[in-house]
């Protein structure tokens, strides 16, 4: 993997993790959750993933 796509993969992993920790998991009282401005974090992660796949394919095409 290139440094660029590794960095993007890291970002995707982090976004997925943030989504789990802030939006999933048990809450004891239900009214005390924090949120990130109603952003669909998994969707943000997937946009990054698509960018990552696109970058990788372009680099492979350039190399061939």
């Amino acid at each position: 993997m290139t440094n660029g796509s590794t960095a993007l993969q890291h970002e995707v992993t982090l976004v997925e993790l943030v989504d789990r920790v802030l939006n999933k998991g048990v809450t004891l009282t239900g009214d005390i959750t924090l949120s990130v401005a109603n952003v669909d974090l998994v969707y943000v992660g997937l946009r990054l993933l698509l960018a990552s796949v696109g970058t990788l394919e372009r680099l492979e095409a350039d190399a061939s």
């Binding site: 993790l17 789990r20 920790v21 802030l22 939006n23 999933k24 998991g25 048990v26 809450t27 004891l28 005390i32 959750t33 924090l34």
Partner: peptide
């Protein structure tokens, strides 16, 4: 997340908590 991962690694039944107040 790291604590939840480690708790889940050594316990059989785990309900991860949301990062809340």
């Amino acid at each position: 997340a790291h604590v939840v991962d480690e708790v889940a690694r050594i316990n059989d039944a785990v309900l991860p908590a949301r990062l809340a107040r």
